[in-house]
Write a protein that binds this DNA or RNA. Structure first.
Length: 460
RNA sequence: GGCGCCAUAGCCAAGUGGUAAGGCAGCGGACUGCAAAUCCGCGAUUCCCCGGUCCGAAUCCGGGUGGCGCCUCCA
């Protein structure tokens, strides 16, 4: 399969470092508040990549960090710890906050059919390794101490900025970061911070009590679980200029060589044409989607309809379209179940087209189109059903679950009585009355369908 | 000021040199007492604009215009 490598800015054939096996690290959540649907888009992308790797016959070790020690709130060198801020406002310890939001996150991704990575290490459980890593960087001449921490000396690394192709000198002019006079260069970043006494999360270190900088956990945990060189590193595009650039600097400064073969980044989700972010506060969560009558899989479908490297503009209109499409697709797939075989040679062709699309830098929108063509253009066949489920191993849309008939679920006596009454009116050809009752039920959120097998209803 | 992405029907969205996938919405028909649901049929002579290369361009090159992102925590 081919993947777009941000480092080289082109699609490249994925050739595993170890034959038959892929090591992948994905930047995970900072667990101090609810993850929003923009975050979820990235994890859905990560999940599709997982599935494609498996389909190509590789075994996979997938690591996703849980950041349970705060990144700082304002900028690189100062500010309040996010976890601590959240903890204070909720009167809980940072550990309680982290545990709670980790649980919510895991439940959310499970509902989105995002498989849990093999390893989900926590930053706070790797403090000794981080300290050791920082010591190694200092020993290699890349770290220096100031009054408030240990910093990475970016000027020691000639190709610093290569991932984002940023020019250090050009960046300085427009930089909005406050000048820290003790730093040797404005782009130098903290590896370890010395903690003020009121900082709740702090650990002993050779430099006194403190806590890790923002980027060190990824360098440390990816190396610990995947080795000095691994295949794929993913994350959101926002991480390209700072987080991943610094991670590269750390890993290369420590190891003396690059640690990652493929850098793969997922684009952002926008809301109503603009940016969605925690700091702007215009965020939605999976919970809110559910409250509005959409299932997590409706959202997954929405994400699958756009390529991971393109921005996806989230609107409620788009959400409606995704819901309708998803329900119809599931029904269309299911309509093939149990039908006689057609022995179509065309099936092989669909199969090839589908997986070719997936293997071409995860072109899932195209693959989805191929699935639609298949379920709609051929006569009914159980073979199509079986093949659709094979496609679903990539898509993860639970297409094997039969669409609900509507008739299931609780119904109260009042509604039941109205339906009976309407049936009686219809029988008596009092259509004015029967239509009136139908409208009344509609206002109550009950939609009726008169089928050959009698009246059916569903909530709408 | 620097770096980068994008621009395809009402909306979402594939397509990266060979003559415009797919979905949603809409319209027409079937079905229905009428609807709903479902099924069948229909939509871009054209891909933001202007030039250029080529037998041939939505796709490549040059120049515009417009939108967005990053350079500050952020998926």
């Amino acid at each position: 399969m081919r993947l777009y490598n941000t480092m080289t800015r082109q699609k490249e054939e994925l050739v595993p470092i170890t034959e038959g096996h892929i090591g992948m690290y994905c930047c995970g959540p900072t667990v101090y508040q609810f993850a929003h649907i923009g975050n979820m888009r990235t994890y859905i992308f990560m999940d599709i990549l997982r599935r494609a790797i498996h389909h190509n016959g590789y075994t996979l070790t997938h690591v996703m960090n849980i950041t349970d020690v705060g990144h700082l709130v304002s900028d690189a060198d100062d500010g309040e710890d996010k976890l601590e801020k959240s903890a204070k406002s909720q009167n809980k310890t940072p550990w309680e906050i982290a545990e709670y939001y980790t649980g919510v996150f895991m439940r959310d991704i499970a509902e989105l059919n995002v498989a849990r990575p093999e390893l989900t290490p926590k930053a706070t459980e790797h403090i000794p390794e981080m300290i050791e890593f920082v010591r190694g960087l200092i020993a290699n001449g890349y770290g220096y101490e100031t009054s408030d921490g240990i910093y990475f000396d970016v000027q020691k690394l000639p190709d610093y900025g290569k991932l984002s192709r940023a020019n250090l000198e050009d960046q300085i002019a427009g930089a909005r970061v406050e000048v820290n006079l003790e730093k040797r260069h404005p782009a130098d970043f903290a590896l370890w911070k010395k903690a003020p006494p009121e900082h709740i999360m702090q650990w002993e270190s050779p430099w006194g009590m403190g806590f890790p900088g923002w980027h060190i956990e990824c360098s440390v945990m990816s190396r610990k679980y995947l080795g000095d060189k691994f295949d794929i590193h993913t994350g959101g595009v926002d991480h390209i200029p700072v987080h991943h650039e610094n991670e590269i600097a750390q890993s290369e400064g420590y190891l003396g060589h690059s640690a990652v073969n493929f850098w793969v980044h997922g684009e952002f989700m926008m809301v109503d044409g603009g940016k969605m972010s925690k700091s702007l506060g215009n965020v939605y969560t999976v919970e809110e989607l559910k409250a509005r009558g959409y299932s997590p899989l409706h959202f997954r479908y929405l994400c699958l309809n756009a390529h991971y490297r393109n921005k996806l503009n989230f609107t409620w209109e788009g959400m409606d379209a995704a819901k309708t499409s998803y329900e119809r697709l599931a029904a269309a797939v299911h309509a093939h179940k149990g039908a006689g075989d057609v022995g179509e040679a065309a099936l092989e062709d669909y199969k090839k087209q589908f997986f070719d699309a997936v293997d071409d830098d995860l072109n899932v929108p195209k693959a989805l189109g191929i699935l639609w063509n298949m379920v709609r253009s051929l006569e009914k066949s159980d073979e199509i059903y079986t093949l659709a489920l094979e496609f679903d191993k990539i898509l993860g849309l639970s297409l094997d679950i039969p669409p609900s008939d509507g008739d299931a679920g609780e119904i109260d006596a009042e509604v039941e009585a109205l339906i009976e009454k309407r049936q009686a009116a219809r029988k008596a050809k009092d259509f004015a009355e029967s239509d009136r009752i139908r409208d009344e039920l509609k206002a109550m959120g009950i939609l009726l369908e008169d089928t050959k097998d009698g009246v059916k209803w569903k909530r709408g």
